[in-house]
Design a binder for these strands. Sequence first.
DNA 1: GGAGTGATGACA
DNA 2: GTCATCACTCCA
Length: 173
Amino acid sequence: MDEFLTPKFFDRDTLTVARELLGKYLVRQLSNKKVSLMITEVEAYDGPEDLASHAANGRRTKRTQILFGKPGTLYIYFTYGIHWMLNVVCGPKDYPAGILIRGTDQVKGPAKVTRELLVNESLNGKEASKKTGLWFEDRGVKFKKNQIRATKRIGVDYAGEWSEALYRFELTR
DNA sequence: GGAGTGATGACA
DNA sequence: GTCATCACTCCA
């Protein structure tokens, strides 16, 4: 049974949600086809203290306000002049937290995932749902706890001690 | 190792 | 308005 992950799933501790997203499916409905990818790598950006987060120090701007929004909301931004990044908002409203989808079983690399799924700003701020055309499913994939590897996040050296946080989770086999 | 690429945020 | 920076990927 495919179970749709509701906003309630994302309305919990960010690190817990991040770990539980591993093995779940990211599903994209395009006009002519449906693409499903199993999530194997994520990074958590959790709270106003997290200096690696766009919402570090509670910074709330036109871009980052999405992170303060409802759990289950998609946060998509453009970086390096080339790439789109896909995140899903976690935790309660007004608490800035999100999870970056870094990789899937077939597509490795955050910018490749968005390219493969044709994800861009048109989905930013929308809720992950079938109506939106991008959502998450639990397809009952099982794995052992020791298959989750927690490591430092990528590309956040500027974040001081927060760059050391083991907020990146990978599914190994 | 280094280029490409453009929005964003800080500062003025 | 200017400016540096950036949660990346590709090619060498």
